[in-house]
């Protein structure tokens, strides 16, 4: 059985309305000037701040074949200009499970492996400090409630990248328990889509990247479903298209 067109099974389940969000950014009142201060900050800042600097860059557009760069390794590479540490931090962030504690532990491990004296010497130029930030979320209803998996993906295909980021990444990282959109897809009888969404959310890909992969899979599967189904409209359309093609090629002359 295919997931496309699956309908809600639980009577108690409400339709799922995707939300766009605006992240209102605020200063966290803390900045770092060198790798030693970065280590101290990574150990102590709140989860939302760490999330903002490690995951929120996934909202940025891909650049050619490259995904967006997280803020921490981007600052170390571009401003401090310590390429080795930047690479290791980028890897630590990409490899982390979607949990704040895990990403924090991996970053601490990388920075602790550098001698303290070197950490203090690897510094930004004057005016190049990394200012840490936090955020509040303002939700924006899209007005496109979905009752089937197909309707959900149809709605998501028309939503901006903040909607995707909010439902697939932010809720995976910051809400306890399973991802709500994944749970909803399961309840809607679309377990394979649920699995796809869960896998992509944990992939570390940019929002652009995972959006295009998920929509591609959904569209392909939709075409297969429509072709395989005995849907009368589709059959009629195919017949009309066939007649037209024969007429154009001259094979349908009386």
């Amino acid at each position: 059985m295919t997931d496309a067109g699956a309908v809600l099974t639980g009577a108690a389940r409400a339709p799922f309305e995707p939300e766009a969000v605006v992240y209102l950014v605020q200063p966290a009142r803390r900045n770092v000037a060198d790798l030693d201060q970065l280590l101290d900050a990574v150990r102590t800042v709140d989860g939302a701040t760490l999330f903002l600097h490690t995951q929120m860059p996934r909202l940025r557009p891909d650049t050619g074949d490259d995904g967006p760069v997280d803020d921490l390794s981007g600052w170390v590479r571009g401003v401090v200009q310590d390429v080795t540490t930047a690479e290791r931090l980028a890897f630590a962030i990409a490899a982390a499970r979607p949990e704040i504690d895990d990403v924090r532990a991996r970053l601490v491990e990388v920075l602790e492996s550098i001698p303290q004296k070197t950490r203090a010497e690897q510094a930004a130029p004057e005016g190049g400090r990394l200012e840490l930030l936090r955020f509040e979320v303002v939700r924006v209803p899209t007005g496109m409630p979905a009752t089937t998996a197909d309707e959900l993906f149809e709605a998501l295909s028309r939503c901006d990248r903040t909607t995707w980021f909010h439902h697939l990444i932010e809720e995976a990282w910051l809400l306890p328990g399973p991802i709500p959109v994944v749970e909803w897809l399961k309840a809607a009888g679309a377990p394979r889509y649920a699995e796809l969404v869960e896998r992509e959310a944990a992939s570390g890909r940019s929002v652009d990247g995972l959006r295009s992969r998920i929509l591609q899979r959904w569209r392909r599967s939709g075409i297969a479903t429509r072709l395989a189904s005995g849907d009368r409209n589709a059959r009629d359309s195919r017949e009309v298209a066939g007649r037209l093609a024969r007429r154009i090629s001259g094979g349908d002359r009386p």
Binding site: T63, G74, W75, R77, G78, A124, P125, G127
Partner: peptide, 13 residues
Amino acid sequence: AVGGIPLQVIHER
């Protein structure tokens, strides 16, 4: 690499 510039210029990107 100062002020608001690193927000706009992502090095090598």
